[in-house]
């Protein structure tokens, strides 16, 4: 309980620090936000009235406090480019990015864990060694290039995927998931390669320990030793890695959405940075940052549950 409270306090402090960082970063950008909204042709009076309405004449700490309050109540300001509430622009984008993140994570787990077990079980076979080379190669390919290669493979050679033919989840959920599969695979492959390598090296180093020899001497078969003893210990660093991966996937989706023309957070973020639409960029970065903090917190909470040593230390 004490551990949980400590982690919760750390999370709140981190959220405050992150919010402050994002707020200050966007406050020191040169240029007047009121002029940004009204355009350079607006009269000085109009700009001054808007500045007052937006609270820009208040001191920075007061503005930060109001921004935090508004942000947590869902008021993220108005878009400079479209003059509509940012919240409205983001509402239908969040499920898209979360689906991409979730699907990628699922693929990483489904690919890396069975393959990691298989290649470590038969580590001296040719196919396991070949996998090592393939793994090294996949780790060196940036996800956006994997995306391009998969587009070529599924789109041009297999005709199983039409790039750019995104279908909204509101129109056709099945077609939406089918379209999201290739982008999710692009994000997942390099991370799955890394996780598979980690799991393999963990299993192989655990297999050299004394308790494994004891388990064999008690008459256990290889599979029993592997699944009942070795895997339990080998999976612990993998869980930590998967937690870190989840935050990377959230960020990686920014690039992948661009490759596959997916209208999610990432695509909107890049457009808003290019158009200098700061309220939108600020809101997206703050939301992604909060998601990262939340994921880190959840990993910290899960860890003592799966590792008795951490639980004991936490107590």
């Amino acid at each position: 309980m004490k551990y949980l409270v400590r982690k919760l306090i750390t999370m709140i402090v981190t959220v405050l620090m992150v919010s402050l960082f994002v707020f200050i970063a966007f406050s020191v950008i040169p240029g007047d936000p009121a002029v940004g909204m009204l355009g350079t042709t607006a009269t000085e009076e109009k700009v001054e009235i808007l500045r007052e309405q937006m609270g820009l004449n208040r001191p920075l700490p007061v503005r930060f406090a109001f921004w935090m309050r508004d942000f947590f109540f869902g008021d993220m300001g108005l878009s400079y480019s479209y003059h509509i509430p940012v919240k409205q622009m983001l509402a239908d984008k969040l499920p898209i990015t979360l689906t991409l993140t979730g699907l990628s994570f699922l693929l990483i787990v489904l690919l890396s864990i069975p393959l990691g077990i298989l290649t470590s079980k038969y580590y001296d076979r040719f196919f396991a060694k070949a996998f090592d080379v393939v793994n090294q190669l996949f780790m060196a390919i940036p996800p956006f290039f994997i995306g391009i290669l998969l587009t070529y493979l599924f789109g041009m050679l297999l005709h199983a995927f039409t790039p750019g033919n995104y279908v909204s989840y509101e129109t056709d959920p099945a077609a939406f998931f089918a379209y999201m599969f290739v982008p999710a695979l692009s994000v997942a492959l390099p991370k799955a390669a890394m996780n598979m390598r980690l799991l393999k090296s963990e299993i192989l180093s655990e297999a050299k320990l004394d308790y494994v020899r004891t388990a064999y001497s008690r008459g256990n078969a290889t599979d029993q030793v592997l699944y009942r003893h070795v895997l339990r210990n080998a999976l612990l660093p993998v869980v930590t890695f998967l937690g870190m991966t989840l935050t990377d996937i959230v960020a990686g989706s920014i690039v992948i959405e661009q490759v596959f023309s997916i209208p999610g957070f990432g695509r909107l973020l890049i457009t808003s940075i290019s158009n200098r639409d700061y309220p939108v960029a600020q809101a997206i970065i703050a939301i992604i940052a909060m998601l990262v903090v939340l994921i880190n917190f959840l990993v910290d909470v899960i860890y003592p549950i799966i590792d008795p040593r951490v639980r004991k230390h936490a107590q």
Partner: peptide
């Protein structure tokens, strides 16, 4: 503490914030 908070964020996200600036 500040370092660890920054380190836990994906580098591309932080780069985007600074590029916005």
């Amino acid at each position: 503490r500040f370092n660890d908070a920054v380190l836990s964020f994906p580098s591309i996200l932080l780069s985007l914030v600074i590029i916005a600036l």
